[in-house]
């Protein structure tokens, strides 16, 4: 049943992505000031949004694990952190390419860039920490505590660095600047597409974790029987 849901979602995501690619690459007008490079915005913003959502979900799942001590929340936490990390990488790479063309530099230590980078490092830390602990419940417990610390850190980092320096363009959609309706709709269409890719990856990863747990259980059983 779960497998079928994943297949259906994958088909929907594929159709949506193909449709969006056609719109993004062929239909949407060229930006008056930035030229064609602005088109990576259609991936930059949705992946940033997906990673943010993933990180919030991971924090909630970590708290849920500590409250209910159920390993399925731990599986959810690791799946969402991994996917959020990938999405954050996409965000930074697309942003970097855009910055090279528009600002003339690959990177700058601006507030958003710096806090994104710290967030990325925090998720790397989470994944590295997990690799070092063998015992499943200890791994779940310790990484949940780390995840709570990391997620408490993110807003503080965000505000401190925001206050420190900002160069990143203001959010286009909220700032009230003019944006071509075709561009806006292309962006709005690609958010659910990328989000769906994220959801599919999380579901796949969850299945993998479940199978691993089952395998561990069977191995232990075989060990006691032999």
């Amino acid at each position: 049943m779960r497998k079928n849901i994943i297949y259906v979602l994958a088909v929907v995501a594929a159709v949506l992505l193909v449709r969006n690619l056609e719109v993004i690459l062929l239909r949407v007008p060229v930006d008056a000031e930035q030229g064609n490079v602005y088109r990576n915005l259609y991936f930059h913003v949705p992946s940033a949004f997906t990673s943010l959502l993933g990180s919030i979900l991971a924090a909630v799942a970590s708290i849920a694990y500590l409250v209910y001590k159920d390993l399925k929340y731990d599986a959810l936490a690791v799946a969402t952190v991994e996917v959020a990390m990938v999405m954050l990488t996409v965000t930074m790479v697309t942003g970097s390419i855009w910055a090279r063309v528009t600002w003339g530099i690959w990177w700058t230590w601006d507030a958003r860039l710096t806090s994104t980078f710290v967030g990325w490092l925090l998720s790397i830390g989470y994944l590295v920490l997990r690799t070092a602990i063998e015992e499943p419940t200890a791994r779940a417990r310790i990484s949940a505590v780390y995840a709570i610390f990391a997620s408490a850190d993110v807003p503080i980092i965000w505000f401190s660095i925001e206050w420190f320096r900002t160069q990143h363009p203001a959010p286009v959609l909220r700032a009230g600047g003019y944006i071509d309706p075709a561009m806006k709709s292309a962006l709005y269409w690609n958010v659910p597409a990328i989000l769906l890719v994220g959801v599919i990856l999380v579901l796949l990863r969850l299945r993998q974790e479940e199978m691993r747990r089952e395998l561990d259980g069977l191995r232990r059983l075989a060990h006691t029987l032999s």
Partner: peptide
């Protein structure tokens, strides 16, 4: 792994 974990989390404090 301790340095990776510790220094990232204490970033705002050090800043």
């Amino acid at each position: 792994m301790l340095p990776l974990l510790v220094y990232t989390v204490m970033t705002p404090c050090l800043l």
